[in-house]
Simulated assay, not measured.
Amino acid sequence: MSRHPSSPLLSPCHAPGELATRAELQALSTKFDDRFANLELRIDARFTKLEDRIDERFTRIDERFTRIDDRFTRVEESIASIAQSLSRLEEKVAHGASKAWVLGGSGGVLLAILGVAWWLLQPYVATMMRIASGSGA
């Protein structure tokens, strides 16, 4: 005996056109309820596993972002320290003489001293050279 395709109330063991009894419908309802409950449990178990995996991944992502944030904080602190050091150096250079300037000034002063010494000693050196060459004085 086949079930009539257009009527869900027909029992598979009845001939077409016969309706199922109340006990058969309750048994069928219980069977569907059990299947749906089992299906619901399986779906819940799968969703729970998926939720746990997703939570674990989000936890790892959160930890990574925390580490990245810590690194950026350290980079910002380093940049601030470098900026502070540069500002101190700029202040020292602006208020003090640079090495090249000091060496240039020292060289200029040395040349001036040598020039003055030559100018002062030139008459004596010239006289000594005349005497040494035998031209007499």
Rank of each mutant, 00 (worst) to 15 (best):
T48A: 13
S11D: 04
L110T: 15
R88L: 15
R71P: 00
D34R: 03
A112Q: 13
R35D: 04
R71F: 10
I82Y: 09
A15V: 05
A80G: 13
N38G: 11
L41I: 05
E77C: 00
R74T: 09
D44M: 05
R35C: 01
T30H: 06
I82E: 15
L9F: 06
H14K: 06
A117E: 10
F65Y: 08
F47P: 00
V125M: 08
F72T: 08
L111A: 10
L103I: 12
Q26T: 08
A97W: 15
L41N: 14
K92P: 00
L9T: 00
S87N: 02
S87A: 07
W118K: 10
S85Q: 15
A126P: 00
T73Y: 09
R60E: 14
G96E: 09
W119C: 12
F47V: 07
K99H: 09
A37Q: 01
A126G: 01
E56N: 14
G136E: 11
L39I: 02
R64Q: 14
A20R: 03
L111P: 00
E40P: 00
H14G: 01
R130P: 01
I43E: 04
S11C: 02
I79M: 08
L89F: 13
W118M: 10
K92L: 12
A132Q: 06
D69P: 00
A37P: 01
L19R: 10
N38L: 07
R42E: 14
E18S: 14
V109M: 11
A37D: 03
S87F: 02
E56F: 13
F47G: 02
L110H: 14
M1H: 04
H14N: 08
E91S: 11
D55I: 03
E90H: 13
F65E: 10
K99D: 14
T21W: 03
R88M: 13
L111Y: 06
S7R: 01
D69T: 02
W119G: 08
S85V: 14
W118R: 08
S106Y: 12
D55Q: 12
P8T: 03
L50Q: 06
R53H: 15
A80Q: 15
E18K: 11
L114K: 12
Y124L: 13
A100L: 15
A83W: 09
G115I: 02
R74Y: 02
L28A: 10
E90F: 09
R130K: 13
A137K: 07
I79H: 12
W119F: 15
T59L: 07
R71N: 11
K31Y: 10
I82W: 10
L10V: 11
H4K: 03
Q122S: 10
R88Q: 15
C13P: 01
S6G: 12
R42F: 09
L121D: 04
Q26V: 09
P16N: 13
R46A: 08
L103S: 14
L39C: 05
A37T: 02
S135W: 09
E56T: 08
P8G: 07
A37V: 03
R46F: 09
L10C: 07
E63S: 11
H4I: 01
S106P: 08
T66K: 04
G96L: 07
E91V: 10
G107F: 09
A132N: 12
W118Y: 14
Y124T: 12
H95P: 01
I113G: 04
G107N: 12
L28V: 06
L10F: 04
R3E: 01
